[in-house]
């Protein structure tokens, strides 16, 4: 039987593995739709490598008609950096959770941003560790209850929610692209992701997009509460918009990438 993608599905989605495996109301599907549309529009299905982390992002290991590598928890960026360094013609996308990016994988995020690695990183911020059942993450909001902050996150003891894009924006060299989008504005999120992919293709530098996302399962919220949490609580703490764009570059040359991977 021939399976064809339904019209509303991005072309790069793999129809055979749909419906996808996320819980009803999960934000991952929306982020992946934005990513799928961006890949379609840029026509890069033939040379894009998709890397997914461990976390609910791992459920995407067969999500796209893209060559895909599921890595270890927090290690997706270095795996893709390794690929990109030797195959610069490929477009590499690191798809990961907030725990993977900001806790266990923070060293890789910081160092690859600092080196302006030509990778596009998409971080799904759902304010906790979803796959393991809803523990506190670096992004958990003050006072938010999770399985390991059962009495609410106490920021005196556990710090304030980590601001990923702000962190990356402050350390990445010129040419980097940094933005924060949200699943409550898919058009904008798609544009951010598209710009982040283009930035890599042009060889400008590190590209980083955080997406505010929903996890109704661990938040234990209904549809209305879910959206309100993203649009009110989360957006208030995590401002939406672009933090760095490559055009702000004033002096110096673009990094050129030669076919043997050496950079000039």
């Amino acid at each position: 039987m021939e399976v064809t993608a339904q019209p509303q599905m991005p072309k790069v989605w793999r129809a055979e593995t749909k419906p996808h495996k996320f819980c009803p109301g999960c934000g991952h599907g929306i982020v992946l739709k934005a990513l799928g549309k961006a890949i379609d529009e840029l026509n890069i299905q033939h040379n894009t490598i998709f890397g997914c982390d461990i976390g609910c992002s791992l459920l995407t290991w067969d999500f796209f008609n893209l060559d895909t590598i599921q890595t270890h928890h927090g290690r997706t960026i270095p795996v893709l950096v390794g690929i990109k360094r030797v195959r610069p013609e490929l477009v590499v996308v690191s798809y990961m959770g907030d725990g993977g990016a900001y806790a266990i994988g923070a060293q890789h995020l910081v160092s690859s941003a600092n080196r302006n690695e030509l990778v596009t990183v998409i971080v799904v911020n759902n304010t906790q560790y979803a796959m393991t059942g809803g523990q506190m993450a670096p992004t958990t909001l003050p006072g938010q209850k999770t399985e390991t902050s059962p009495y609410g996150r106490d920021i005196k003891l556990t710090g304030k929610p980590m601001l990923g894009p702000e962190l990356v924006a402050s350390i990445a060299p010129e040419g980097a692209y940094v933005a924060r989008g949200t699943v409550s504005n898919v058009m904008q999120l798609k544009n951010f992701i598209k710009k982040g992919l283009e930035n890599q293709i042009k060889g400008n530098g590190f590209s980083f997009i955080e997406a505010l996302s929903a996890c109704p399962t661990n938040w234990r919220t209904n549809a209305a509460e879910t959206w309100s949490f993203i649009e009110n609580e989360m957006s208030e703490y995590f401002p939406i918009g672009e933090l760095r764009t490559p055009d702000e570059k004033k002096v110096g040359e673009k990094r050129k990438v030669t076919s043997n991977g050496a950079k000039h």
Binding site: G133, E147, T148, S149
Partner: peptide, 25 residues
Amino acid sequence: PITPQNEIMHYWTRLVPKYKKDFLQ
């Protein structure tokens, strides 16, 4: 956090105030 030990942390964090213990994630 890691499955299958997560609930050790979950129970421990719930009992921490009562028995004056500590926890750091």
